[in-house]
Simulated assay, not measured.
Amino acid sequence: MKKLLSLLSLCMLTAAGAVNLAAQPKIVAHRGFYATEGSWENTISSLANAQKLGVYGVEFDVNLTADDQLIICHGPKIHGTKLHAQKSKFADIRAAKLPNGLQIPTLREFFEQGKKCAATKLILEIKIHSTPKRETQVVEAILALAREMELVPQIEFISFSKHVCDEVVRLQPGATVVYVSSNMKAMSPAEAKALGYKGLSYQLNVMMNRPEIVREANELGIETTLWMVNDRELIDWAIRHGVTYVSTDSPDKAKAYLEAVARFKE
């Protein structure tokens, strides 16, 4: 039955003349590829799995601890504890065990794994912090490490915080900066371009209710990311509308589906 539904979906796309292989969205593994035995989100394991899978990029979350250590964690709470990603100290956070015996990595450790596969983009989400001043400190620390490790070209800096995005543009001219939002009144591609951003990453309800965003973005050379894309119908929508990237919790399934679309057109 699943195979029949997949075939019907492919037929519908083809009948509508919607499949343009050059315009197929690229896959971003949301918090890495962790739906594998022994892995967990936002860990070295999930990054390595995504690198092996061969997707465009890996999205991960960066927080600054109370004692100024950059860690990879969605937050604000640390899994299975009462610790806070930004209000607790690094030693306490590091001692906390994630499922499968894994630990929360530092940004340096994550970058070290990232350097092993230059083809995999590092989609670095800088989380919202308590004040603009604190956010500037976070941006400065991240950029200093990225420069030290010569990773700036491999990184795309994304954030829900406009201040964070503006600071990356100011402090690292030419960097790929992407504004993220789930707000129905989120900025237009023209506004993003004027601010020096290179992309917009919008939650599916925003983009699907405002499809003109994708059209305008493509006209202006602004890249778009649709999230979260965890079923075929959303991938189909992204293909039809010319979305640049899809962010998914199931990068293996998304990759297999897009490859099936490509084979069907041959």
Rank of each mutant, 00 (worst) to 15 (best):
A119T: 14
K198C: 02
L102V: 11
T43S: 08
R170S: 06
N230T: 01
I213F: 10
E150I: 07
D68V: 03
R94P: 01
I78W: 07
D92V: 02
L21Q: 11
E125N: 07
I44W: 12
G57D: 05
E59Y: 10
L47N: 10
A190Y: 09
F264Q: 02
E150P: 10
L83E: 04
T36R: 15
L64I: 09
A95H: 06
M184T: 05
H163N: 06
M207A: 06
E219A: 11
K162C: 01
F157M: 00
I93M: 03
P25C: 05
G80I: 05
M187R: 11
T131I: 10
V55W: 12
G221W: 13
E112I: 12
D166W: 00
I222W: 04
E167P: 05
D252S: 08
N205Y: 09
S188M: 14
K133D: 14
I123V: 15
R210D: 08
R170E: 09
N230K: 00
W227F: 10
L7A: 15
E109H: 03
L4D: 14
K162F: 04
N100Y: 14
A262F: 08
N183E: 13
V152K: 10
L226C: 01
Q154M: 08
A22T: 13
L234G: 02
A119Q: 15
H84E: 03
S6V: 15
V58W: 07
K253N: 05
C11P: 09
G196C: 10
S9N: 14
T225N: 13
F60T: 02
K162I: 02
P105L: 12
K198A: 02
W40S: 12
L4P: 00
K198V: 08
G101E: 08
L5W: 09
D252M: 08
A35N: 13
M187F: 05
N20F: 03
S181R: 10
L8G: 15
P25V: 02
T36F: 01
P132K: 02
L258Y: 06
G17D: 08
E150V: 13
T244A: 11
C165W: 06
L102C: 11
L226M: 12
K127D: 05
H163V: 01
T120A: 05
G242Y: 09
D61T: 04
T14Q: 15
V152L: 12
I235C: 07
S201W: 03
I128V: 12
T36L: 15
G80H: 13
A256N: 11
K52F: 01
N205K: 15
A190G: 13
M184K: 08
D68G: 01
T244R: 00
L64M: 14
K255Y: 04
R170Q: 08
G32D: 07
H79I: 07
A190S: 15
P189L: 06
I155L: 11
